[in-house]
Design a protein around this nucleic acid. Structure first.
Lengths: 138, 138
DNA sequence: TTATTAATCTACTAATTCTATAGGGTTTTA
DNA sequence: TAAAACCCTATAGAATTAGTAGATTAATAA
């Protein structure tokens, strides 16, 4: 299941991507428009800023704005920052690899071989979809 | 992330599918072979029995055995019983649909439209893979 | 027939982690 | 001076991953 953190993060990014001139938008504005708890959204936007997706402007008239073109922001990178690994098991993850404690031999694991397929198909979608693509559903 | 419950469940089912004559296998045997906590495995197998994948025989020489041919058990059905919905958001789920509280209009939701694609690609794999396919990774 | 043993079944408990916030105070800037 | 981001802490509830104790059932050996 996708966490609300990721869901809200994607919604906020889409909202920012839809701004005409990429002018700063306050947390409160996004919070109201997208029905997201203000304080929760605050922490999500902070994460996105620390990971280079957003920048912010303090004080009156301030807010958050995108640092890159929506067409250059892949969903895969957003997903990894907010949700974590795209793989469903760590032993299959490309960016967050970990060995499974219970598996003596990865190459023989039936679960692993299935999860590689799931990872590949999801990854293809997440890699080939950008924030600009998401804005088109309007 | 895939829960250990689902992971262990798939491993146990694969183990049973590999038995020559489909003779009952005790929980202890599977537990040792697959490095799974015995009591945890017990509850997982119980779930799989209650959902029609397995049957069991009590007493000496008893254990669990498959009720259907491995080639007739789709990973999609196993996944849904152990892990729950294949979709990452409830508003996209075919078998566990729920409306999202924060969305005024589903058809316009960017997250939803992305998650439909993810669901479809995963579903295709889970539907077209059977327990028999998993046994081949040996 | 009886006792033993090897199984599943049922119910309760518990530690740990994750999720989704809420609150309050600080700093910056128009 | 007001509006905004920033930063730190706490927390209720849920899910996960088991562990504990005992009841029930069935095959088999005495």
């Amino acid at each position: 299941m996708l966490s609300k953190k990721t869901k809200y993060g994607i919604k906020a990014l889409t909202f920012l991507a839809r701004q005409e001139d990429n002018a700063p938008v306050s947390i409160a504005t996004i919070s109201k428009s997208e029905n997201i708890s203000l304080k929760f959204l605050e922490s999500i936007l902070l994460t996105l800023r620390k990971n280079g997706f957003l920048s912010s402007k303090k004080g009156k008239g301030g807010g958050y704005y995108l640092l890159k073109e929506p067409s250059e922001i892949k969903m895969a990178s957003i997903y990894r920052v907010l949700e974590g690994p795209i793989s469903m098991v760590p032993c299959v993850s490309l960016n967050f690899y970990e060995k499974c404690a219970d598996c003596p031999d990865e190459n023989v694991c039936a679960v692993r071989n299935l999860m590689i397929q799931i990872r590949d198909s999801s990854l293809q979608i997440f890699k080939n979809t950008t924030l600009a693509d998401l804005c088109r559903y309007k």
